[in-house]
């Protein structure tokens, strides 16, 4: 459903610092990465390690202090300006005065796509919100809000989908259901996707590759390929190979936990 070739995401010497000159805090240390087009990459790290900042840099919502990011040949800003990407935010960021349909339709109109009621209704059905089309966000559960937010992100037919802890605010059982039901939707579209999460199982379950980040500033600590069948069936999730990769990620995380709490130099 995406147009043209799936573009690689290239990060060259990307850093990000916050704060006034002289008292800067480095959130992202110099980072070089190539994320393959059409794949799902997970950024994993402890809370507040700078992984969300890295995602915001890729989305063009933040500008790197140094270095450059390219999606194919475009800058994130260029991609953003032609509505080629979509972000699913941690807090869903649904507009409370719009219904579910209104919020999903907003994803289409913001991305300059023509009005299409049928497409919006189909997306709402796909994310499992049939019957709630006319409900406002305040009348939905946390899980349902995230479903609506994913539907909105997909409504603009993005080439690049950025997921910022999209299931971080829901309970474990809901998260498990969402992890089963929603990923096929974007996998079917073949969009390039980047997922930020602090759940090891979620990362292994959803992605083709896992980047483990060190805390403050974010620096690549481990780069782990998820060598599992793309369709993560119940058998795959119960397999030894799945558990082995989870253990590998957990170990990489633990190895770098020592530095937590010590301010960056």
């Amino acid at each position: 459903m995406t147009s043209g070739v799936q573009q690689d995401i290239t990060l060259q010497g990307v850093t990000k610092s916050f704060g006034a000159p002289g008292r800067q805090i480095e959130a992202v240390a110099p980072t070089d990465l190539v994320l393959q087009g059409g794949s799902m990459t997970a950024l994993v790290g402890p809370s507040g390690c700078g992984k969300s900042t890295l995602l915001r840099l890729i989305s063009g919502l933040e500008v790197p202090t140094r270095g450059q990011i390219r999606i194919g040949t475009e800058t994130p800003d260029q991609l953003r300006r032609r509505a080629g990407l979509a972000v699913a935010f941690q807090d869903a960021a649904l507009l409370p005065w719009r219904t579910v349909t209104g919020n999903v339709a907003l994803g289409r109109s913001l991305a300059h796509r023509p009005r299409d009621r049928a497409a919006v209704a189909e997306l709402i059905r796909l994310v499992g919100l049939s019957g709630f089309e006319r409900h406002r966000p305040a009348e939905l559960s946390g899980g349902m809000r995230q479903r609506a937010a994913i539907a909105r992100a997909l409504a603009g037919l993005p080439e690049l989908l950025l997921l910022d802890e999209p299931f971080g605010a829901v309970d474990e059982l809901t998260r498990d259901r969402l992890n089963t039901e929603l990923p096929p939707l974007w996998e079917a579209r073949g969009a390039t996707a980047v997922l930020v999460t602090h759940s090891v199982t979620e990362a292994v379950r959803l992605s083709d590759r896992i980047i483990v980040l060190t805390p403050r500033p974010a620096r690549v600590a481990a780069d782990i390929a998820v060598t599992l069948a793309r369709t993560r069936t119940a058998e795959v999730l119960a397999s030894d190979a799945f558990r082995a990769i989870c253990a590998q990620v957990s170990q990489a995380l633990r190895l770098h936990q020592a530095s937590e709490g010590i301010p960056a130099q």
Binding site: A83, L85, F89
Partner: peptide, 11 residues
């Protein structure tokens, strides 16, 4: 978050 949403579409 609402401003980020709109900005993420380049608007």
């Amino acid at each position: 978050g609402w401003f980020d949403l709109i900005r993420s579409y380049g608007r």
